[in-house]
Structure formats: structure tokens, C-alpha cells
Design a protein around this nucleic acid. Structure first.
Length: 984
RNA sequence: GCCCAGAUGGCGGAAUUGGUAGACGCAGCAGACUCAAAAUCUGCCGUUCGCAAGGAUGUGCAGGUUCGAUUCCUGUUCUGGGCACCA
């Protein structure tokens, strides 16, 4: 009986489905365990081998926990709203709902082939109205809530309105400020619009003006991803910043709680670090600078108020409100020019720019509040409007960027740190004793910080301030394929729908192009947008809206009354293990943590951190392959050459390497060969020249490249336009039409370049799991993905090596069945040697699975099966236990053999075997003996030997004596059960 | 540029707490079985000197701590991920 993996895997997958064995109940006395994958965006390219890495890991863990007696929730769903489907619709006219449905179908079929134990009854799709109804519902809750700064939690905005109406909003100390403070009487006298504007500043989801990437030519807003070097990815049109009304999530209100919550979750330190840095809490001061000869005041945020006397200039963000007001007539045109330039730059470009210092003087001078010194006010792109107050005081002797700016624009530098400043670069120290610093003279900078703040506060020119780098999250998109906002606008007032009327379904559109004025496609639906209550909001929610709470919906997916019943969320509680990529380190994870805290504040769930433990799977990268095509810049005479007739020439990687080797002779030979081909094509053209060979890399499908050797006939076959192209390789020059599939690729020896990149369809470097499952089976595929290396590590995909895992499973099979003899397993009693192998394996598998070290677990299985084979062990007593151990990893073969042994039902319904240490007791150890830290010999010693006995034995050792050469050792280091080191 | 991570044979990786570097697998080499192939099995397999015994050297690079460093510290190079509208 042979290992017919195709048949048995199919059979078991059907039986699992028919028997509904992965369905999970909410009401059970068993302890719960919740294992969650980050659900995928169902892209049109289908699943590639990178997706299942985390899914296999979580599947193994779920099955393992089930064997350990837990009621395991292990659901899957789809993050099915998103930009790619909309772009695809724009190009092909196919409705995103339709393509998304198809893609999900493909994904599910692919997932099922790998044999995952998902409870598909709990599937969620963020684009289903029955799901996004609750996303909209949570939006209403956010809109109708504010963050109470005293209690540090969200509360219904109705409470705030009541407070305003009864007590107003007056400062505890000091004078009320117009526009911020008001009495109850004033509040009650405000117009509805005035009241709503004030409330909007407190709502947890609010509307305000913000900047977007605007592409005039496309008439649309673009994602950063769609902007490349300042122009649109599609079409290459210029992109500028534009202010538009947007929705925002007030995540900054939760900044402190998001920081604090990190102490209560098991995320990796680096993950916590990334979130902390993203939140970017800093403490410092905000202070006012007056502008000489103007009413304007500039608020500056600084973490280093101690350096105030070293401030040689101020820099405003180009977008700063005061720029126009303070700019002098003389500087006006220069400023305008600079603003034009900045408009074309993305935030990332602006911060990343270091080589080139740019900026523009406004003509205004600020007055240092302490010594009255007048310092110039500049604008520069490295100051961002979104951070702090959008204005900084520049201290060139202490900040390198300020230093470079001062040098570049010849602004004199004041040294306040004496010898700590060398005149050649800034020194950001806090240790220096201050000089030239008025009342701070003689203080160390560290101590001066609080002294300076106190002074600033006592003079009433500023205050101590905690600042966050994190900004409120943009919550609206000028797109179609997302959740519509249940909001209408009238007279500038946003009114939300009654929650009982949800969902507000996404209406069907014919065209996916943008609406007028850069609004989303929904703006084109005149009938839909105009309602008696007002004009509907036409933007939709971002991708992260649906993914910020999906883990709750899995707990109670069919509930029509609530997003998730309290009963269900109390039982399943936090996600025990969450598996996904680091690319979500800050976005998704912060948003879902915030939503959880918010829902907790409202008492809708009983926990405020969603994920107890996070496992970051590494990214499986693609290993791209390139062919090199000759580029014709420098080819002439251009007026005499018929463009149509210029040939396509490909260079093999080794030829390209020769070109780049810097050896002019080798490069000359290649150039001559190209010229030869050209002369053949253009026999009549005189003065033909091609000055320098240049080339460009083009992705070739990794699936038709063996190692780096291109299957050249298949390449031409797939790209018929190249069937008259020339291929120059180390074996000669070949014309496409002479290349035949019959000849082995080695004959042509066209080699490719390679590069590790993100796996993506457009890079032709994706490998489809289906092919591998078909060829080797799901169990082999699962174990191979795990065997590749630690789950947390990123690595390029390589199919080589999968054979070894497949051989291992066949070897396992042969312990039970022989191709000729048939059944070989028996009911004999196991002996100690066999039980030792078994129990060592049980212990190691349990350990490795618990710490997510699946690669070493696979290797442990291999060692176990090798040893049992060597021992000729075919005993059911041992093998049965091995099957349970391996069931999480290779569920199909485990089920099959489990049943062959005479068991009924799923192997998952048994219990994980108990490890017994008595089989593993050792009495001796073969110690490594080092001399001066270098291994010289081994020594078999009893484990209960005394230190004296050991030393005696060591000194008596021949090899040790040889190295001692008659001398006596300085020291003998003996670490029990580890090693011995003799120091001479 | 900033934040985070990683770097070990021809390749993927192992070494869990500072204690025998290279487990396990792939590829390769040699052999057995076979008419042959497949499958399977056995042995070798970091580099280098040596017939061998054995020695030297070796975990990106440069230093340091230690009886002992892949592991800890300082610096540095390269690669990957993220940087707010991809998901």
C-alpha cells in the first residue's frame, strides 16, 4: 500500500467538511483558546506561498491546543474593501463586488486545499452589508462620543452637551479665551452651527480640513502609494497638496492608554518599540515668540527649552497659517516660489531630504522673549505642519539639521555649550554647562530644562506641554469601494443616521471615476446623495475601518441585534494568539487597539486590549529573475533608422557582468557584436553608431527559470513579440526564431539576474501553493513551509528542498505500510530504546510548538522517524503516539494512519500524549574537554562524579597531559552536564 | 533621513540560560540494489596544511569583556520591513 497523498488528502478534506468537525460552539464548559490570523485582502492574484506561512503556523497551534483540551476558536474571513479592486474596476469596468466575490472564492478554494481547520460558519467579509452595518454602527458610536480628559475615557457626547448647557466650558484658572471658553448662557445662545462646530472638536470621529495628494489631471485624490517622485503612478501627472474636508479618528486622545496598554500584552519588544515611536510621546514646552513690528505671535514647541538662548532663527512649516501674514513685501515673491516647490513634495521626501537644504526667509524677525534678541523667521520643508505647532526654534549648535540650515544660509551661530561645540557639527548633548544663556548660565542642560519651563510659565509666555508625534488618523477616502458614511450634510452641519436604519448600503455605480471637485465616485449619484435630511457624505471609510474590530465579529458572526453579544465576547475574550506580518506593526494594530479601548469604555466589551499575544510572521519574499534588454540611447544616426526595424536584443546575465566589469576589451567585444546585428538589419545606413551599450532589466517569470537558467523557448512562447529578438549569451547569439523547445535550455545558456523583492504578481515572482499541493500534497507543503526557517523570519521563497520533506512523510508511511508486504505495523510491546525515542520526541514537540519553533519541530519529527526506522520499530504502541504528535503539522496523513490503526473518528478528538521523564534518565555524559577554551578531547564521566573525581580524571587524560606538557594547570573549570575547560 | 529587524557551509537553517558551531533537510560526491531507470539504502561533505594521527582557521566587518562569545558590549557595512490614502 503506497502513500497516495492525493486521494487520502481529498478524502479527509471531504470528511472534515461533511462531519463539520471544525465548527466551534460558544457554549461549552471547556476552557477557550482564540487563535487568529490577520485576515487577507483577497487580491486578484490569488494566494501565493507567502500567505499560508502564518496560516499554517496558526493552524498547527489551533490543532495542538485542541489536542490539549481547549475549545479553540480559529476563524477566517476577508478584508474585502480596498483600493486594488476599485482600480481594477476603473480599468476593466468590472464591479468590485463581483471581482471581490470571485477572488474570495479562489482564496477559499486554495485555503481548503491546504487543509486548514477554519470554522467557515464564522467567516466574515468586511464588504458584506451584514458586516459593515456594524462598522457603521461603531462609527456612529465614535461620532457620538468624546474623550473625557479627567476620566481618561470615552463617554457619550450627550453628557458633554448637558454639561455645556448647564455649566458651560470655563477654565479652572485664568481668563477665558474667546472661541474656546464659554458660559452655559453663551452656549445656549449659540446657533446650532456654532454648537456643532464646538462639538466637532471633541467627537472621537470628526470632520475637519486636511491635506491630500491631489492630481488635477486625473481629477482625483491619490494614495501615497500611487504617487511616485511627485507624479501620479498612472499617467505620470503632477500631484500637489490640496486641502479638503476629511473625517478623522481622534486616536491621539488614546495616545497615553495605547502606550500604557503595551505593558499588558505579549508583543515582541521591537513591535512595542515601533508603536512607542509611532506614538512618539515627548515632553517639553510650548512658548510664544512675538514678531517684531507685527501683532502676530508664533507658538513654538520644543523639547529643549534649555537651549532657548541658542535659538538663532525660527522655522515655520510652509503650510503654517502665519506665513502670509508675516512675509515682508520684499520676500513675497521668493516665498511664493518656495511654496510652489513645497507643494510638489511628499512628506516623506521632505523629511528624508538631507543632502539638499532648502528654505526661504520670510523677511520677518521674531523676538526672543528672554533677551529681546531679534532672530530671522524662515520657512523650510523639513518642518511639518502636522507635528507640534508647525514651528520650531532652531538651535544650530545643538541640532544637526538646524546647523546645516544655518551654514547653508549663512545664519550666525550662537554657541551656548562652550567647548562641547566644535564649530563643525552640532552637539545634541544634555550634559553641557550653559553659557551665553542669561538666567540659565552655569546650569547643566539637563537641569536647565525644568528651570526654563518654570520661567516660561511664570512669565505667561508658554507652558509645559506633552506632545505626540502621532496624528489623528484620516478616516475618509475619496473612493467607492468602502463603507459609506451614515452621514448627511446640511448648512455645514453633519447629521448622522439613526442606528436603527443601518446599514446604509453602498449604492451601485456604473462608473468608478471620481466625482466633481475631487469627491469620490459616489458624488456622481445625484439621486443617492440628495436626501430630505441633506446631502450625503460621498467619501467612504478607509480599509482599516472594517479590520479594526473583525476579531469581535467572529465571536458572534450571525448576530442581527448586536455587533457582538456581551456573552460571546465575555466567553472568548481576548485573542490569545494573533499571527500576522510586521507590516501591520503600527497601522492596523494601533487602530484595532484603539477601537477595543473605545468599545471597552462604552461597556460593550469587557477587555481593553484585543490581542494577548502577537506572533509576527516573517514575509516570504519573492526571488525575482531578470532578463536584460539593450536600450538604444546613443544609437544613430537617428534620422536614418527606421524605428520599426531596430531589433530587440537581450543580454544574458554573464554578458551584462562583463559589460560592467570595467574591462574595456570585454565590453568592446559585446558592443561589436551588437553593431554586427545592427549592420545586418540596416545594410544601407552609413555612419551607423552605438556609442555605449546600456540595458534595462525586465522581470521574467520565476516559474520558467531553473535556478538562474532561463527556459528561453518558453519565454519566447509566452512573449511572442520576442520571437525575432536576439539573445546574446556565453554560448553565442541566438535569434528567437531559431530557438526550439526541443533543445535543452543549457544549449542557449541564457542566465538571469536575480533580486529579492516583495512577492507580487507584477514582479512575476509569485509561486502558487496549488501547484505544490498538487505535486507533493498539502501535508508536505505545510511541513515544508514550516521547515524553511523560523516563522518570524523573512526569507526568499525557494522550492528546492521540498523533496526532502516529502521523502520524510513517505518514510513515516513506511513504518506502517510496505509497498510489497502491505501492513507492517504490529501490536508488540515497545522496548525502552523505542520509548526513549518517543518520549524525547513528545517533550521536544511540545516545547517547540509552545514557543512557535515549528522548523525545529519538523526536524525533530525527522529525527524521530529516522531513529524508529533504524530501530525497525513498527509498534502501534509507539506509532499511535507519534501520529497524535504530528497531527497538527500533517493532519491528513495523521488521520489516515490513525484510522488504519483501527481507531475511529478524528485524531483531533484524542488527547496530546503525556511525556514521561523516566525514559530519558541518563547516568553518564560524554564531556567535551577544552584546553584554554579549545576543544581537545572528550571524556565519558558519571553524572554524579564529584568535582575532585572529575579533576583527577581530567588530569589523567592522555590528551590533556600532552597539552599540559608537564606543567600544572592554573585552573580547571567544570560545569556539570555541560563541559570541562583546563586553563594552562 | 528616521524607526524596527536580520547577517552562521554551495543553499534553507540548528545551537532555547555565555559552554562540543554546522542538528535536520536540500544540493553535490562515492558506493549498494537494478538489464536499466525510479524508489530505497550506506558512506563522505566549512576552509586549509597533512598519507595519517593531528594541527591551523572559521558565525557580515573592526574592536572589547570572559577560562570560554554565533550568543554580551562599542563601532561599522550590507539586506529586508515600516514611515500615516496599499493592505
Amino acid at each position: 500500500m503506497e502513500y497516495d497523498f492525493r486521494k487520502l488528502e481529498q478524502d479527509w478534506q471531504q470528511k472534515w467538511k461533511a462531519g463539520n468537525i471544525y465548527s466551534v460552539a460558544n457554549d461549552t464548559a471547556r476552557p477557550k483558546f482564540y487563535v487568529l490570523d490577520m485576515f487577507p485582502y483577497p487580491s486578484g492574484a490569488g494566494l501565493h506561498v507567502g500567505h499560508p506561512l502564518g496560516y499554517i503556523a496558526s493552524d498547527i497551534f489551533s490543532r495542538y491546543k485542541r489536542l490539549k483540551g481547549f475549545n479553540v476558536l480559529h476563524p477566517m474571513g476577508f478584508d474585502s474593501f480596498g483600493l486594488p479592486a476599485e482600480q481594477y474596476a476603473l480599468e476593466t469596468g468590472q464591479h468590485p463586488a463581483e471581482t471581490t466575490r470571485k477572488n474570495i472564492e479562489t482564496f477559499k478554494a486554495q485555503l481548503d486545499k491546504i487543509g486548514f481547520c477554519y470554522d467557515w460558519n464564522r467567516e466574515v467579509k468586511t464588504s458584506d452589508a451584514s458586516y459593515y452595518r456594524w462598522t457603521q454602527w461603531i462609527f456612529l458610536k465614535l461620532f457620538n462620543s468624546y474623550f473625557c480628559n479627567t476620566e481618561k475615557k470615552a463617554k457619550p457626547i450627550a453628557e458633554l452637551i448637558n454639561k455645556y448647557a448647564s455649566q458651560g466650558a470655563m477654565p479652572k484658572t485664568g481668563n477665558p479665551v474667546d472661541g474656546i471658553h464659554f458660559t452655559a448662557d453663551q452656549w445656549n445662545g449659540f446657533t446650532r452651527k456654532q454648537q456643532e462646530d464646538i462639538l466637532m472638536k471633541r467627537r472621537l470621529c470628526y470632520s475637519a480640513y486636511g491635506e491630500v495628494n491631489w492630481c488635477e489631471a486625473l481629477g482625483t485624490v491619490l494614495a501615497n502609494d500611487e504617487v511616485v517622485n511627485g507624479v501620479s503612478e498612472r499617467g505620470g501627472h503632477p500631484v500637489v497638496k490640496k486641502k479638503m474636508r476629511q473625517w478623522y479618528l481622534r486616536i491621539t486622545a488614546y495616545a497615553d492608554r495605547l502606550l500604557e496598554g503595551l505593558d499588558r500584552v505579549a508583543f515582541s519588544d521591537s513591535m512595542k518599540e515601533m508603536q512607542k515611536n509611532w506614538i512618539g510621546k515627548s515632553e517639553g514646552a510650548e512658548l510664544k515668540f512675538n514678531i517684531h513690528g507685527s501683532q502676530a505671535e508664533i507658538d513654538v514647541y520644543t523639547t529643549r527649552p534649555d537651549t532657548i538662548f541658542g535659538a538663532d532663527f525660527l522655522v515655520l512649516a510652509p503650510e503654517h497659517d502665519l506665513v502670509q501674514q508675516i512675509t515682508s513685501a520684499k520676500q513675497q515673491s521668493a516665498i511664493n516660489e518656495y511654496l510652489e516647490y513645497v507643494k510638489s513634495r511628499s512628506d516623506r521626501e521632505r523629511i528624508a531630504e538631507v543632502k539638499q537644504v532648502t528654505g526661504c526667509f520670510t523677511g520677518a524677525y521674531a523676538v526672543n522673549p528672554f533677551d529681546g534678541r531679534q532672530i530671522p523667521v524662515w520657512i523650510a520643508e523639513y518642518v511639518l505642519a502636522g507635528y507640534g505647532t508647525g514651528a520650531i526654534m532652531a538651535v544650530p549648535c545643538g541640532d544637526q539639521r538646524d546647523y546645516l540650515f544655518a551654514k547653508h544660509f549663512n545664519i550666525p551661530i550662537t554657541n551656548i555649550i562652550g567647548s562641547y561645540y566644535n564649530g563643525e557639527e552640532a552637539n545634541p548633548t544634555k550634559e553641557a554647562v550653559l553659557e551665553n544663556s542669561g538666567f540659565l548660565d552655569g546650569l547643566t542642560m539637563k537641569d536647565a530644562i525644568s528651570v526654563a519651563i518654570e520661567k516660561i510659565e511664570s512669565l505667561g509666555i508658554g507652558k509645559r506641554k506633552v506632545n505626540y508625534r502621532m496624528r489623528d488618523a484620516g478616516f475618509s477616502r475619496q473612493r467607492y469601494w468602502g463603507e459609506p458614511f451614515p452621514v448627511t450634510w446640511k448648512d455645514g452641519i453633519a447629521t448622522v443616521m439613526d442606528e436603527r436604519t443601518l446599514p446604509l448600503e453602498l449604492p451601485f455605480v456604473e462608473k468608478y471615476g471620481p466625482g466633481p471637485e475631487g469627491e469620490g465616485p459616489l458624488a456622481n449619484l445625484t439621486e443617492w446623495i440628495n436626501t430630505p435630511a441633506g446631502r450625503r457624505e460621498t467619501s467612504t471609510m478607509p480599509g482599516y475601518a472594517g479590520s479594526s474590530w473583525y476579531f469581535l465579529r467572529y465571536m458572534d458572526p450571525h448576530n442581527n441585534e448586536q455587533f457582538c453579544s456581551r456573552q460571546a465576547s465575555d466567553y472568548w475574550n481576548q485573542v490569545d494568539v494573533y499571527i500576522g506580518g510586521t507590516e501591520h506593526a503600527v497601522g492596523h494594530l494601533l487602530y484595532s487597539r484603539m477601537w477595543t479601548k473605545f468599545l471597552f469604555d462604552l461597556g460593550l466589551i469587557g477587555f481593553d486590549e484585543p490581542f494577548k499575544k502577537l506572533v509576527n510572521q516573517g514575509m516570504i519574499q519573492g526571488s525575482s529573475r531578470f532578463v536584460y534588454r539593450v536600450l538604444w540611447t546613443g544609437l544613430g544616426p537617428s534620422d536614418k533608422l527606421d524605428k520599426e526595424k531596430i531589433p530587440v536584443i537581450f543580454l544574458s546575465k554573464d554578458i551584462v557582468d562583463k559589460l560592467d566589469s570595467g574591462n574595456p576589451a570585454a565590453a568592446g567585444v559585446i558592443q561589436a557584436e551588437i553593431l554586427r546585428i545592427l549592420r545586418e538589419k540596416f545594410p544601407d545606413v552609413s555612419g551607423l553608431h552605438y556609442d555605449e551599450v546600456s540595458y534595462g532589466g525586465i522581470h521574467a517569470d520565476v516559474n520558467i527559470v531553473d535556478g538562474i537558467l532561463l527556459n528561453i523557448s518558453e519565454y519566447i512562447n509566452r512573449n511572442p513579440k520576442y520571437n525575432t529578438a536576439f539573445f546574446i549569451t556565453s554560448k553565442g547569439t541566438f535569434n528567437g526564431k531559431d530557438i526550439h523547445a526541443g533543445k535543452p535550455a543549457e544549449e542557449y545558456n541564457y542566465t538571469c539576474g536575480s533580486e529579492v523583492e516583495k512577492m507580487s504578481k507584477s514582479k512575476y515572482n509569485t509561486v502558487n501553493p496549488d501547484d505544490l499541493v498538487l505535486k507533493y500534497g498539502a501535508d508536505t507543503f505545510r511541513m515544508y513551509e514550516m521547515f524553511l526557517g523560523p516563522v518570524e523570519q523573512s526569507k526568499p521563497w525557494d522550492t528546492k528542498g521540498i523533496e526532502g520533506v516529502h521523502r520524510f512523510l513517505r518514510k513515516l508511511w513506511r513504518l506502517f505500510f510496505d509497498d510489497i508486504k502491505g501492513k507492517v505495523w504490529n501490536d508488540e510491546k515497545a522496548v525502552n530504546a523505542e520509548l526513549k525515542v518517543l518520549h524525547r520526541t513528545i517533550r521536544k514537540i511540545e516545547e517547540d510548538t509552545e514557543r512557535f519553533s515549528f522548523n525545529t519541530a519538523v526536524s525533530t519529527f525527522m529525527i524521530c522517524i529516522n531513529e524508529l526506522s533504524d530501530l525497525n520499530c513498527h509498534k502501534k504502541e509507539v506509532l499511535e503516539k507519534v501520529l497524535i504528535l504530528i497531527a497538527p503539522y500533517a493532519p491528513h496523513i495523521a488521520e489516515e494512519l490513525w484510522n488504519c490503526l483501527g481507531n475511529t473518528g478524528s485524531v483531533l478528538n484524542t488527547a496530546f500524549p503525556q511525556y514521561d521523564g523516566k525514559y530519558l534518565v541518563e547516568t553518564t555524559k560524554d564531556y567535551p574537554v577544552s584546553v584554554n577554551g579549545k576543544l581537545r578531547s572528550n571524556l565519558l564521566l558519571s553524572l554524579d562524579a564529584s568535582t575532585e573525581e572529575v579533576e583527577k580524571m581530567v588530569l589523567a587524560n592522555e590528551v590533556v597531559q600532552k597539552w599540559l606538557d608537564g606543567k600544572s594547570p592554573k585552573k580547571i573549570i567544570y560545569v556539570k552536564n555541560k563541559m570541562i575547560n583546563v586553563v594552562i
